[in-house]
Design a protein around this nucleic acid. Structure first.
Length: 617
RNA sequence: CGGGGCGUAGCGCAGCCUGGUAGCGCACCAGUUUUGGGAACUGGUGGUCGGAGGUUCAAAUCCUCUCGCCCCGACCA
């Protein structure tokens, strides 16, 4: 059903019926967004066939967005309001943190990217094109080059610093595979900030201020999130945090300590080597046991009657072309990023089945570090949890056979023990005596200490207090604004639709007339709607000529936090029904006190989410 | 880029294997009856079957090429 088609145009007999109702108000032009009869929010009964994730389905069904092409979406009026709310919170907090808003171009010339070196480094994700004269350009996936070009023109002295500039703007990244609706689009709305400081100490102070601002922003958005330590990736700065919205459907795995503040992306999470009590091997030497067709840890563990932790998982990877065997305990998983760092390799991937067969003569399920075929791998490395491990079971490098009684230090040539495994629930916190818990998260923000990578490459220098010329020390800070909207839904929805946090809902209150043809009901609704506007409450008024059921369904889909249902029965008794979107039952509220009641409810749902001005009081 | 799937009315789908009148539900239009959780009935409107080529008396259906979209993987400042 489409809101606008339903009610925008009344003709013939319907128009006559409407004319017969003298109390029906004329079409309001000034507040058309607030009346469902005028609001462009086409809702859908069924899920579109190309939407898989909840946020994409609900945003589409509830009339917030439409897809134009792969990874590119239209933001319809409802979602524009949500985005505006998120943007307002971001602006208020960043302005308070001393940042200044500006706006940079989406189209960027190739020259500055060549200067920073990224014209070559950046892959096909950078959408490049030529103008009519043949000059090369790209659509901005990020704006380090542009901002550095701006700052280097006019900033000369340490006295001009610190400087922190941000924008909220559309970005384009030609993702290999756009997916999950707004969560990983090609075109998306991003807030990106860039800081400029005189030295590293000052830059880290700015970093901390931005970190705090981010915490305030996501708290005010009403989201359950964690700042986590993140991999610094190819930029390789010294400090980086991701802000992760907790949601089952999140792409990122994160762990956080149940006792202290430690939280990290599992790619990054460090692990302390367990204090293994030194034990002497009880088996004098490895023994071959038959394990026909048994390849997986589970199968072998069940067959031998040993727990998975008594097995060694032997993984073979190709590190820059050379085969390396990496050992982790049977109940652990390899972290390829840690392995890559240990090996100092530029690429690490699991070796192909063919390559393993060629080198070992047996399939991957029967590999082990003892009795390795000569030259099969260039080296063997092991996770720190295996240091001193005795009496373990491993593959025997023979088809359909494993060893038991393998003691690593005696029976294998391990060139290094290091933290190589993936952190998971139940592991010890690396900072305190707590335990780690596992979560899934959606990365909505990232703060990054950049150092001088761009300022040095692009000669963005200042003269410091000692009259020495030096590159400015930078940081960059992103928030995926449109992704915040999607993440909020991933975290806040039920079977019926969206359940917006109050702070970012498109409206605060949804007023429904249950019998739009009963004059008393309409009069009551109009009066409440007008009173809400006077009181500064953002109300969407569903004045459409629809049955109550359809209005309830649409209201649940749209997810406005408070719903006021006005029906004939209640109006006779002088009451209306108020229901929170997440609540099961409505409460009856006297019409005379309805506005005050709504104001209190709104304030209650915004508790702890003060604006900078309110915090200053 | 590898693997898988899908393009038929605005939306969701069937029909394709085995060639022969393009169909269903929702939405939309008209009317009647309804009216507190996506109303019922009656009658309507709407399709170059993603595109191009081919086979055939005849192609949504078979063949070739092509474009688009979705999912898994690889990738992701």
């Amino acid at each position: 059903m489409c809101f606008i088609r339903r009610l925008a145009i009344h003709r013939s007999s319907k128009a006559q019926r409407l004319k017969q109702r003298p109390d029906r108000p004329p079409v309001h032009r000034g507040d058309s967004l607030m009346r469902a009869s005028r609001l462009y929010a086409p809702t859908l009964k069924e899920n579109p066939n190309d939407a898989e994730v909840v946020s994409h389905q609900l945003l589409t069904r509830a009339g917030y967005i439409r897809k134009l092409t792969a990874g590119v979406y239209d933001f319809l009026p409802l979602s524009r309001r949500v985005l505006r709310k998120i943007e307002t919170i971001i602006r208020e907090e960043l302005d308070r943190a001393g940042a200044q808003e500006l706006l940079m171009p989406l189209v960027q010339p190739a020259e500055i990217w060549q200067e920073s070196g990224r014209w070559q480094q950046y892959g096909p994700e950078l959408l490049r094109f030529k103008d009519r004269k043949g000059a090369e350009f790209c659509l901005g996936p990020t704006h380090e080059e542009v901002i550095v070009d701006i700052v280097r023109r006019d900033v000369r002295s340490w006295r001009d610093l610190p400087l922190n500039l941000y924008q909220i703007q559309v970005k384009f990244r030609d993702e290999v595979r756009p997916r999950a609706g707004l969560m990983r689009g090609r075109e998306f709305i991003m807030k990106d900030a860039y800081s400029f400081d005189v030295d590293e100490a000052a830059a880290l102070t700015t970093y901390d201020a931005m970190y705090d601002a981010y915490k305030a922003i996501f708290t005010r958005c009403g989201l359950d999130f964690r700042p986590v330590e993140a991999d610094t990736g190819s930029i390789g700065g010294s400090r980086s945090h991701e802000f992760q919205v907790l949601a089952e459907s999140g792409e990122d795995a994160i762990v956080s300590c149940d006792a202290c503040d430690y939280a990290a992306n599992v790619e990054q999470a460090e692990l302390r080597a367990p204090a293994l009590a030194p034990a002497a091997p009880s088996a004098p030497a490895p023994t071959v046991v038959a394990t026909p067709q048994l390849k997986s840890i589970d199968e072998v563990s069940a067959h031998l009657g040993l727990p998975a932790r008594a097995l060694i998982k032997s993984l073979v990877v190709e590190a820059d072309g050379a085969l390396v065997m990496a050992l982790v305990r049977g109940d652990h998983e390899l972290n390829e990023i840690k392995l890559k760092k240990l090996l100092g390799a530029t690429s690490v991937e699991m070796a192909s089945e063919e390559r393993i067969l060629k080198s070992f003569g047996v399939p991957a399920g029967f590999l082990g570090p003892h009795a390795l075929p000569a030259g099969a791998v260039s080296r063997v490395v092991a996770d720190a949890a295996l240091r001193g491990a005795v009496d373990m079971a491993t593959g025997a490098n023979t088809r359909d056979a494993h060893f038991t009684g393998v003691s690593l230090e005696r029976d294998a040539q391990v060139s290094a023990y290091a933290d190589l495994r993936l952190a998971g629930a139940g592991d010890d916190c690396p900072r305190c005596s707590g335990k780690l818990r596992a979560f899934r998260g959606i990365e909505v923000g990232h703060v990054f200490y950049l150092g001088t990578k761009y300022s040095a490459a692009m000669k963005c220098h200042i003269i410091d207090e000692q009259s020495v010329e030096r590159p400015i020390v930078m940081g960059c800070y992103g928030i995926g604004v449109s992704r915040v909207m999607a993440a909020a839904i991933e975290q806040n929805h039920d079977a019926e639709g969206i359940c917006w946090p109050m702070a970012i809902a498109p409206f605060q209150v949804h007023i429904l007339t249950l019998q739009p043809n009963v004059p008393e009901v309409v009069a009551c609704a109009e009066a409440l709607y007008a009173a809400c506007q006077r009181a500064g409450i953002e109300a969407l008024y569903d004045d459409r000529e629809l049955r109550a059921g359809a209005k309830f369904k649409d209201a649940d889909l749209m997810g406005i936090p408070l719903r006021v249902a006005i029906g004939g029965r209640g109006v006779k008794d002088g009451v209306v029904e108020v229901k929170g979107r997440r609540e099961a039952a409505a409460t009856l509220v006297q019409i005379s006190g309805a506005v005050e009641h709504l104001k209190a409810q709104i304030a209650g749902q915004l508790t702890g989410q003060l604006t900078p001005a309110e915090r200053a009081q």
